[in-house]
């Protein structure tokens, strides 16, 4: 199976390890992974801020970059969902909309791809420690990926998974919201940090780097000792 990695601009720039783990994980299950170098950012920062025409420029670049791919897999529910919105956003340009639809149909979030397409529920990982998982809003509500991360994590040996209180609540990231409405965002992420504290977990795991950076940044600011990881980093342990 041929898979083109959609790295997301955040992972590309800030957490390359997540990309490495994603590649290795997919390869371990027989995928042939390539990395289309023309990819940039999915356009969400502009799209969600109301800059539709600006975001469309990014979208078209992404459509071109992945045109040859058989499957597109990315380690982010939010960015993958953005790709899946392309056909709607480009509805006014039928030819692009059709190309967008093709991209949308073949694009998957990492855990979704593992569980739904590769039919893997146990990746054979071992990770010793106590962790709690934050299910990101876009991954669960918009992309509809609710069970896959949980199934995969529950099968990780040595991992003691503790339920995060009020886990469905947004961490306060919201892209530009974190900057534009930083005071509200700060209170939201603080509440999240307190709930993480309540679990006494050593690790916070997330499936979206934006949210993990937000929560991790607050944990660090608070001097909380909790380490934060992307789910790919946990799943790719042996």
């Amino acid at each position: 199976m041929k898979v083109s990695l959609f790295i997301t601009c955040l992972c590309d720039t800030f957490t390359p390890d997540v990309g490495k783990d994603t590649v290795e994980l997919l390869e371990r299950f027989g995928c042939e992974v390539d990395f289309p170098v023309g990819q940039t950012c999915c356009g969400q920062p502009a799209y969600n801020s109301g800059y539709k025409s600006e975001s469309i420029q990014a979208m078209k670049q992404m459509i071109k970059a992945f045109e040859q791919a058989e499957y597109v897999v990315g380690p982010s529910g939010s960015c993958v969902h953005m790709l899946k919105e392309y056909p709607k956003v480009l509805a006014g340009e039928p030819e692009w909309a059709e190309r967008a639809r093709k991209l949308s149909d073949k694009t998957f979030e990492l855990t979704q791809f593992l569980v739904d397409v590769l039919k893997v529920e146990d990746v054979g990982a071992t990770f010793t420690g106590t962790a709690t998982y934050h299910p990101s809003c876009h991954m669960t509500r918009l992309l509809g990926v609710k069970d896959a991360p949980r199934i995969l994590l529950e099968n990780v040996k040595g991992l003691n998974l503790i339920d995060l209180p009020m886990k469905e609540d947004c961490c306060g990231f919201g892209g530009t919201f974190a900057v534009k409405n930083s005071h509200i965002s700060g209170q939201m992420v603080q509440e999240k940090a307190e709930h993480i504290e309540e679990t006494h977990a050593d690790y916070l795991i997330g499936g979206d780097m934006g949210c993990v950076m937000n929560m991790g940044g607050r944990l660090r600011r608070n001097g909380q000792e909790v380490k934060f990881l992307h789910i790919a980093q946990v799943l790719n342990t042996q």
Partner: peptide, 28 residues
């Protein structure tokens, strides 16, 4: 911990990680 310009809103509330030494695409 204290970012410039548009980063200010972010770092007012939380720390921002430095970009990695080696991007993913370089590693790849």
């Amino acid at each position: 911990e204290k970012g410039p310009g548009p980063m200010k809103g972010w770092t007012e509330q939380r720390d921002f990680p430095a970009p990695a030494r080696e991007r993913f695409r370089d590693w790849y």
